[in-house]
């Protein structure tokens, strides 16, 4: 066990500050363990969202030493030992309290997207034949745990706050999953261009870098979608990509 200093942001929508806590850190501790210890021993009402503590539910997203992370998958012994560890809420969403932010906007955006609509089943029992090869592409997108770290890091949302016209990487991944599902019949290209604002993305790949599930968001989801949009309309950036890469998907 060793003593480590944590600086944890506490406050609400009116403002707040980093509070300093010194705690004992056990072997193998992740940042969420440390937060729990602070909560149990020093600040009973410290607000934090978490569920599975195994990297599967995507609830405990925060900014650890300034980078968007799942607290349950960030080991304390992998952070620099010579400085305090800061833990702050995601910056892209409104603060509820302490480390908890209001992510409800994401749920609203998703509900607005045209739903999955399958073609008629191949068999009388209501099932479809699908090749493993064909399902693997969308399966990558279905690994998403909706931690919203990609939304947090995306500068279109984080810095420009274009929440009203830009759906963000999470939702492009969601659309890509349906568009590439072998049995889906929906067409969401116009929606991508208009309401979902995919044109604002200038593929800086920040989202891909922070994805705890390792989804290749930009290359595998956003760029192919941009190409589909370009086939139906004009998006200068996507057109350029298409020219460089040759044919689309």
């Amino acid at each position: 066990m060793k003593t480590t200093t944590f600086k944890v942001w506490q406050g609400n929508s009116d403002g707040g500050e980093l509070k300093t806590y010194e705690i004992e850190v056990d072997q193998g501790y992740v940042v969420l363990d440390a937060i729990h210890r602070i909560q149990a021993e020093q600040a009973n009402d410290l607000a934090v969202r978490w569920n599975c503590k195994a990297g599967k539910c995507g609830s405990c997203s925060a900014e650890v030493n300034g980078s968007p992370k799942l607290m349950c998958m960030t080991r304390v012994d992998e952070l620099p030992a010579d400085q305090p560890i800061t833990v702050e809420p995601m910056r892209t969403f409104p603060i509820v309290k302490d480390l908890v932010t209001d992510v409800s906007w994401n749920y609203e955006v998703k509900a607005s997207i045209k739903r999955f609509s399958p073609k008629t089943a191949d068999h009388g029992d209501g099932s479809w034949d699908m090749d493993q090869y064909d399902v693997e592409r969308p399966q990558e997108f279905r690994k998403c745990i909706e931690c919203f770290l990609c939304q947090d890091v995306c500068h279109v949302l984080r810095d420009h706050q274009l929440h009203d016209r830009f759906a963000g990487p999470r939702h492009y991944v969601y659309v890509a999953n349906m568009e590439m599902n072998p049995i889906d019949t929906g067409d969401r290209v116009a929606e991508l261009r208009e309401e979902l604002g995919i044109g604002y993305c200038n593929i800086t790949k920040c989202c891909t870098k922070v994805c705890p599930e390792g989804i290749t968001i930009t290359d595998n989801a956003i760029i192919p979608l941009k190409e589909r949009v370009v086939d139906q309309s004009y998006d200068p950036l996507a057109r350029l990509i298409k020219l460089v890469k040759g044919s689309g998907d």
């Binding site: 399958p118 029992d125 034949d129 090749d131």
Partner: peptide, 22 residues
């Protein structure tokens, strides 16, 4: 079985057998 199959009609994608079944 019916409850599981119906999930694919709602967008689920299970791993496949070589002949394309769940």
């Amino acid at each position: 079985p019916e409850r599981v199959r119906e999930l694919e009609g709602w967008g689920a994608l299970m791993d496949r057998t070589p002949d394309g079944l769940i």
